[in-house]
């Protein structure tokens, strides 16, 4: 099962719609990383609004993905955590998902853009002639 990774300029978007197997997770991560590298992505938004359960495995997948992306220089935002998913993670004693979280994609993009604007390596705003794949 492939997770699509559309691009919005130098920002990547991806949505995890359902539970991943070990293999799926690995595949997703390596796809994302090579895309980040290819495009020199500045930021990634991971949308988990479709997940009504996040267990420790999925939490690790999300966290690891965020760490990997950061190592390649991309800012990470996780958006769409459902309220009871957040509550269950906290009750389980799950470490906070390292990334910053926003309610939805729109806010995620805004936050990302604000953060990116503060970066030293940010040169131009104009990569808008690139479209969604």
């Amino acid at each position: 099962m492939r997770i699509a990774i559309p691009r919005l300029g130098r920002i990547l978007l991806c949505a995890i719609q359902q539970d991943l197997s070990d293999d799926d997770a690995l595949e997703f991560q390596s796809n994302l990383l090579s895309t980040i590298a290819d495009v020199e992505a500045l930021g990634v938004v991971i949308d988990i609004s479709a997940l009504d359960v996040v267990d420790s495995f999925m939490a690790r997948v999300i966290n690891d993905t965020a760490s990997m992306a950061r190592l390649l220089g991309a800012e990470i935002i996780v958006c769409g955590i459902q309220p009871f998913v957040a509550l269950t993670l906290v009750e389980m004693g799950q470490g906070l998902l390292g990334a910053n979280c926003t309610f939805n994609l729109e806010q995620g993009l805004k936050t990302l853009q604000a953060r990116i604007a503060l970066r030293g390596d940010f040169t131009a705003t104009k990569d808008d002639d690139e479209h969604f794949d």
């Binding site: 420790s56 495995f57 939490a59 966290n63 009750e91 389980m92 004693g93």
Partner: peptide, 14 residues
């Protein structure tokens, strides 16, 4: 298994 480690202890809290 390398998971976050919440595993059984975390489940028990739920």
């Amino acid at each position: 298994g390398g998971s976050m480690g919440a595993g059984l202890a975390g489940t028990r809290r739920l």
